[in-house]
Design a protein around this nucleic acid. Structure first.
Lengths: 214, 214
DNA sequence: AAACAATAGTGGTCTGACCACTTTTCAACA
DNA sequence: TGTTGAAAAGTGGTCAGACCACTATTGTTT
């Protein structure tokens, strides 16, 4: 197609060219991009240069490649970006504490978010969790929190939380003591009632119980 | 070094290998990585595969390459990543919303965290910001929020926030109207006084003002 | 019409070759 | 001896061509 003016980093230019091409040709999410060989031809660069650009975009989760099929414009929901970044960040000192704090940030935000929304407080999920707590108690800590974040309907936050959970070596197992069950019950009841501050307090207590365990 | 078992995407494995290598050899920010040829030799893959991984990390801003010199571990403050990303992503309405909500989560968490800690509320930074607001008003929105998150001393949260901020192309510029200045003043004063809920309310107002601008 | 085999297309990887640039080396010079 | 400066070595940037593994298409046979 057009000839591009080489700057210091050709593959960065290619990334920009691809963006323009996608826009110009109205390529939508899920659509197929031209093949690497075609792109190399059209942009007048080597295939390896095209690939460096495509691989970058793939790591960002902007495109998806399937061997034998082609390259497709991807949905941002993949968020591979966050994954890579976190694995790099995670290995730096002080990070264990940061990971825990950040995880708590997202968990508390979910609680607050639900408390503020009438329709989400009335979801049957909470009652069902309470019932399960009363009966056999086969409830995973992880399930409770995950449900809350799922309900907030923020996929990015959910994705981040998943990552943090994986790295934070926290015992997300079954509820153990009776005291813990009481605390979680209080948390759920306060959420249902929309008592934000009390819910947060219950959550803080819960964290303390879990901490004391380790 | 070691031989890696090929999965479907070799270059993704390489990204992981590089991470391990950086950790194992204690390569710090600013340090030089082995050359592409050496990496190819050590990981027993072709140089082009190494390059695909490195170029990906470069677009993420995790490394920096200088022709003739080498590849260096970077503290990913270089922008280039996100201009590209935002232009790619902003077309998808849902993810844009998620990014914004998640950014707000981190900003509010910082405010709450500071309000709860006496010693951080008394930091001279807040007074100095207030003074600057009263006088010429040359204060960037970004500076205020960043300062708050920095003070919380959670690097991970800070990095996530940086990322989200750049994704969301929010007008993080100078404070404009008098009403906005008043709101920010209220936010800062409530923080200093440790009035958590009032600080959050002020923050909510601020967000609304910024929203209304667009 | 259905089943199957050959073919073309696509991404994944490797090799080797240049180029442009920077750092290092080391010999010639003052 | 100390400096200078040119050659050499090292490094990232790019290209071309060659395979491989896999998928989709095509075309023939049954």
């Amino acid at each position: 197609m057009e000839t591009i003016k080489p700057s210091s980093k050709m593959f960065l230019d290619i990334v920009g060219e691809l963006r323009l091409m996608i826009k110009a040709e109205g390529i939508a999410v899920g659509d197929k991009l031209p093949s690497e060989r075609v792109l190399a031809e059209r942009l007048q660069v080597g295939r390896s240069t095209i690939r460096e650009a495509l691989r970058s975009l793939e790591l960002l989760g902007l495109i998806e490649t399937r061997r034998g099929e082609g390259t497709f414009l991807s949905d941002f929901k993949k968020h591979q970006l966050v994954e890579v970044l976190s694995t790099f960040i995670m290995q730096q000192p002080n990070s264990a504490m940061d990971v825990k704090q950040t995880r708590i940030i997202h968990e508390k935000a979910a609680i607050r978010s639900i408390c503020k929304q009438e329709e989400k407080r009335q979801l049957p999920v909470w009652q069902s969790l309470l019932v399960r707590l009363e009966e056999d108690g086969a409830v995973l800590r992880e399930d409770i929190i995950r449900e809350m974040i799922v309900v907030t309907d923020n996929r990015l936050s959910l994705k981040i939380w998943f990552l943090l959970k994986r790295y934070s070596r926290v015992p997300y197992e079954e509820l153990t003591t009776a005291a813990e069950k009481e605390t979680v019950k209080a948390l759920l009841e306060n959420i249902v009632s929309g008592l934000e501050e009390k819910a947060i307090t219950a959550y803080d207590n819960w964290i303390e119980i879990i901490e004391g365990e380790v």
